[in-house]
Amino acid sequence: MQFFGGSEISPSPPAPTASGNNAHMMYVFNRNGVCLLYREWNRPLHTLNAQQDHKLMFGLLFSLKSLTAKMDPTNAGKGNLGVPQLPGQGCSFHSFRTNTYKLSFMESPSGIKIILVTHPRTGDLRESLKYIYNLYVDYVAKNPLYTPGTSIRCELFNTNLDQYVRSIA
């Protein structure tokens, strides 16, 4: 069994369960906006090439975060729109829904952003994202051969992630 260095990031086969695979894709970004991991399970539509797609996704999250920080109706003392904010500072968001997908978002205190795109009818995934973050800590951050800031190529992480995402209802 190969533990480290598996470089294949190809889509995994469809879930064998009858409930079907709800998840479309997942992104992991670090605080500099580098896409550490992109995994795709079920994505019929590609509008852009991979790099542009990652950039657009990071841009969307970044701008939505500054929008929610500015809009926060419970806090009177907000800065200007787009003022730089540390992870955990200001009002953030945890998901948005369109008619075709639901995007769930989590940011760790170190600025790792985990994004999971699923079917629009999926429930609250905040706990699931925390679990995925734990997987990241266990299999990536604790991996001695992993250099922070480079793309994630840990086979154990990928297999565990696939397994877990398939189990999300």
Partner: peptide, 26 residues
């Protein structure tokens, strides 16, 4: 703009933009 970008990032065709955004306080 965010509404328009969310349509571009859809994994499935026929997306018409964000309907509900769930932030921490609203």
């Amino acid at each position: 703009s965010m509404h328009a970008i969310s349509q571009q990032l859809s994994p499935v065709a026929g997306c018409s933009g964000i309907e509900l955004l769930e932030a921490d306080t609203f």
